[in-house]
């Protein structure tokens, strides 16, 4: 999210946001076709290098952002490792049955999740949402109704945060006590969720009416920001192709695990 953080602009920021999104989705689908754990282990270095050196953010921030990734890796891999099917038993204890096959399949899923997480982090850290919506309308011809609704909606969020603070202090002044247990949930919904949601629905409605009364329409329009493809997009594609080539070769020539297809 690029609203407040300080960062240096890198070539990843200069890529076309819509192209970046589409290309990342292609990479996502491509990752689903990698079934060799050796390959995916090496492939992880492709996004890792970009995160480590080219997002333009401080190392400390990056490290903090990557803490949940470890949890994610473990939680994605664990069910499959403990309960997956396989024939070569390593360890059995009660319901837990770890086999060679299930272990590597779990590891594979963990690396897959890690790759998606890293790609997502690169995108989030190097894309300005406003430019993304501009470029979605210009390059992918998303109807402006959707793109501008998105941008207006993003603007409503900080107002909601402010309203939330107001509500909190107002309830404090009135001496509302917190309920316990399940009643706490219904209380929170009644006191916070309902007023916050209904107010933002009203606000969104007013904004839409205002936009239309000022002649917002879905047809031809000019743009404050013009977004186009550039050499940075080409550079990124070449980096990925080169990276995939090298890591595939490494995975096939220098395998680190005994299994080459986790589906068996």
């Amino acid at each position: 999210m690029q609203w407040t953080l300080n960062y240096e602009e890198t070539w990843l920021h200069r890529m076309n946001p819509a192209f970046k999104l589409v290309f990342f989705l292609v990479l996502f689908l491509g990752l689903l076709f990698i079934h060799n754990p050796n390959v995916i282990t090496y492939v992880t270095f492709i996004p890792l290098v970009l995160v480590a050196f080219y997002t333009g953010h401080k190392r400390k921030l990056l490290l903090i952002l990557m803490i949940p990734f470890l949890l994610l890796f473990f939680s994605s891999a664990s069910s499959m490792i403990f309960f997956g099917q396989g024939t070569t038993t390593w360890w059995k204890w009660g319901l837990i049955h770890i086999t060679e096959e299930s272990f590597y399949r779990g590891l594979h899923i963990g690396f897959r999740a890690l790759n998606f997480a890293l790609l997502g982090l690169i995108f989030a850290l190097t894309t300005r949402p406003v430019l993304l919506f501009y470029s979605l309308t210009q390059q992918l011809h998303v109807p402006p109704r959707f793109a501008y609704s998105f941008m207006a909606a993003v603007r409503i969020l900080p107002m909601m945060v402010e309203e939330f603070q107001q509500l909190k202090t107002a309830l404090l002044v009135r001496g509302i006590k917190k309920e316990k247990g399940i009643k706490r949930v219904t209380q929170t919904i009644k006191l916070y969720a309902v007023p916050l949601l209904s107010q933002s629905i009203r606000r969104a409605h007013r904004i839409a009416v205002a936009m239309e009364s000022k002649q917002f329409h879905n047809g031809e329009r000019t743009y404050y920001y013009n977004t186009r493809l550039s050499k940075f997009d080409l550079f990124f594609v070449m980096y990925v192709i080169f990276g995939v080539g090298v890591t595939m070769w490494l995975g096939l020539e220098f395998p680190t695990y005994a299994i080459t297809d986790v589906r068996k």
Binding site: P68, L71, L72, S75, R145, F146, S149, F150, A152, A153, V154, I156, L157, M160, L196, L197, S200, I201, R203, A204, H205, I207, A208, V209, M211, E212, F216
Partner: peptide
């Protein structure tokens, strides 16, 4: 869908989008 429908839908969605993000660690 009119502009107001889309805008309201997206506002509701973004609120839940933030809840979705906070829900990740809970699930993990």
């Amino acid at each position: 869908l009119k502009l107001s429908d889309i805008l309201i839908t997206i506002v509701i969605a973004l609120v839940f989008g933030i809840i979705y993000k906070l829900w990740g660690p809970v699930y993990n």
